[in-house]
Design a protein around this nucleic acid. Structure first.
Lengths: 210, 210
DNA sequence: CCCGAACTGTTCAATGTTGGACATTTCGCT
DNA sequence: AGCGAAATGTCCAACATTGAACAGTTCGGG
């Protein structure tokens, strides 16, 4: 398979590597945007804060994902804050280098296009979810998606540690609402938890039923 | 400037052209997805319908935009319905042709990447808007964006014809809510209308204020 | 110029959601 | 073990939103 790291090395781009521990800020909303990052290991959450200080989680990214691509489209400042949610290693690619390589290297631009297409589909799904569904359904969907995080093949049903507060910021509601539904889901046997959260397939019924 | 149509012609891709009149369906949610389309003239709206028959407008696309790119990422059926909102001409590019040209032609892949980046930024903004803002603010934002439709330079403040029903589907709320706010905006002098809608800059205050 | 279809204006009860507050539990740390 | 911080459980009044109904208006076409 195509190994981006090896490729970038040979293109002389893989040299700048940055490492972050959990909770460290990778870049902050408002920073000048001049690099594109590529996640090698770990995970990053993208959050946005509005004028009144409310926070929203826009995306959770993992190995193989790019972030900061906005600068390629001319965004001069970062629209979101990127925070490591685990020990994380990223490749740092300077904007103009990125443009040069995207233009020159087929394999690389193919890969990047695939990433953008996937990301776009995901964000569109999130938007549609937000349009159609109540917070209860959005929570159920988010839990199901998280439960498969990092294991697209096998159904793994244990979540990485996520607080109710964070869930609230992911689906765009309040913590008390999340708490209410988590208890409801537990009462109905859709999930269990005690430190770790276990998601049951039966939770799907919440998303599916009218 | 780079003219995509001329380029596609010389690559032997510009031959398949399709034309639609207003309200005609370009493709429907559930259709098998095998082509990427490029809008030359006109405009298209993308809508999604959920199980209970509720409809949402996901995007409004114009000349220079691609649609149906989801198939490149492996989506085998269309996730949305595309409907012409004006007399429209599109280039039809078969999926595998698209992949071949994306891989082989720098200028073309650059262009496509730019489109995906822009689209992504827009959808992300819509998602954030949905997270943070009340339906009143979302309506105000949508009106302001529409008022500049097709004229990024000069501030043009007259909307293309959009019904309150359609506005409701764009911001994810009900018609009665849209009606309520439209009247409020009019009462406050933020907009005028009588067939055509005129958007005042003062409407910005609705979006900006806490 | 009249009809029907599409759009707009208006109302309201039922429901969903927010944004607090406060008590309780869990967790990491020394 | 004991402290403080973080996370969870619970409650509730104020507020926003839905969904449906019905009347009035505009508009295009026969």
């Amino acid at each position: 398979m195509f190994d981006l790291k090896v490729f970038l090395d040979s293109a002389g781009l893989g040299r700048k590597v940055a490492k972050f521990r959990g909770k460290e800020t990778v870049f902050a909303q408002g920073d000048t945007a001049k690099n594109v990052l590529y996640i090698q290991e770990g995970g990053v959450k993208l959050t946005v804060i509005n004028e009144s200080g409310k926070e929203a989680v826009v995306a959770i990214l993992g190995p193989g994902d790019f972030l900061g691509e906005g600068c390629l489209a001319g965004q001069s400042v970062c629209m979101a804050t990127a925070t490591a949610i685990a020990p994380t290693t990223v490749l740092v690619i300077e904007k103009n280098e990125m443009i040069r390589v995207l233009h020159g290297e087929h394999e690389f631009s193919d890969r990047f296009i695939a990433h953008m297409l996937a990301r776009n589909i995901r964000v569109e799904e999130d938007l549609i979810d937000q349009f159609f569904n109540s917070s209860e359904k959005r929570l159920a969907r988010t839990l199901l998606l998280l439960a498969r995080y990092g294991a697209p093949g096998l159904p793994q049903k244990v979540l990485p540690k996520v607080s109710q507060e964070m869930l609230a910021k992911m689906i765009g509601t309040t913590r008390s609402r999340v708490n209410f539904f988590m208890n409801k889901f537990r009462r109905l046997g859709f999930i269990q938890y005690d430190g770790e959260i276990h998601v049951n397939d039966s939770l799907l019924s919440v998303v599916l039923h009218d």
